[in-house]
Amino acid sequence: MTDSSASPSAVAPSAEGVAPLTAVVTGASSGIGRATAARLVADGWRVLAVARREDRLAGLAAESGCEVLGVDVTSDESVERLVARAEELFEGSLNAVVHVAGGALGVEPAARADLDKWQRMYDINVLGAVRVTRALLPALRESGRGDLLFVTSVAGQEAYPGGSGYNAAKAGEHMLAAALRLELNGERIRVIEIAPGMVRTEEFSLVRLGDQAAADAVYDGVENPLTAEDCADVISYALNAPHHLNLDLVTVRPLAQAAAHRVARHQGV
């Protein structure tokens, strides 16, 4: 496991003497998770960024000044190490858990479903989020200003051909957030869901399709698909908004996308 010292500006109290807000960001080795961790540090938060790939986390730590830890959200033992590190860094109190770890595998129709892929998607997107939530909820309660933020997908709201496995996993995560919002009602913990549409990152479609040419074709002719930084902007707004204000569900798409399966494409774009 790899740790990195947070930058002095991220750790030091503000001019008013108020300690910085604190966050754990999962899936931080690339894409939306990486962009979110960097953005929150820039906002003045103290961040523990976690993911499986420790080499990539080291680069993020050097660039942003966040703390990092190698964590597999599908492993109880690994999440226990996350809890211990968060408690050490944040003294038992935590303001936000940002669930970004997830992803899609394959585009086979349900009739030809690869159940290993379905199981892996459910393990990461749903059970991983449950495992981390359950483990860090006491620290969120202790802070008196807690946030659980789930980065889901429009795939959890709209089915599309070839998406059944990912649709099912993200719908499960969407319902997890909705149930938690009811279960935690009356506590000082917001439950926020950000559901992006088409986001062009370096790995999402490549991991899903297993081929760079096929991954590139997903975005062919699409004017300005979302970026990881676009999503980090929305996440930053949701977390930094006054705590009495809760963004239950924000669906964010590029202008070119009207639905999960309907995207305007133009020649020469």
Rank of each mutant, 00 (worst) to 15 (best):
D3F: 15
A6H: 05
E16K: 05
G27M: 06
G27L: 06
R34Y: 06
A35G: 03
A38I: 14
L40D: 01
A51W: 07
R53Q: 02
R56Y: 12
G59F: 00
L60V: 11
E63G: 05
G65Y: 01
E67Q: 09
E67M: 07
T74S: 06
S75V: 10
E77V: 12
E80F: 10
R85V: 05
F90M: 08
F90G: 06
E91L: 13
G92I: 15
A96W: 00
V97L: 15
V98C: 03
G102K: 10
G102A: 12
A104E: 08
M121H: 04
M121A: 07
N125Y: 08
A129V: 05
V130S: 06
A135Y: 02
R141Q: 03
S143W: 12
F150L: 09
S153L: 03
A155M: 09
A155T: 07
G156C: 03
G163H: 01
A171R: 06
L176M: 15
A179K: 03
R188S: 13
A195P: 00
A195L: 05
T201D: 09
T201K: 05
F204A: 12
R208N: 11
L209H: 06
D211F: 04
D211E: 08
A214M: 14
A214N: 14
A214K: 13
A217Q: 15
E223K: 07
L226K: 07
T227M: 14
C231D: 08
A232C: 02
D233Y: 01
Y237A: 14
A238E: 04
L239Q: 01
L245R: 09
N246S: 07
V252S: 05
V252Q: 06
H261M: 08
R262I: 12
R265S: 07
G268W: 00
V269H: 01
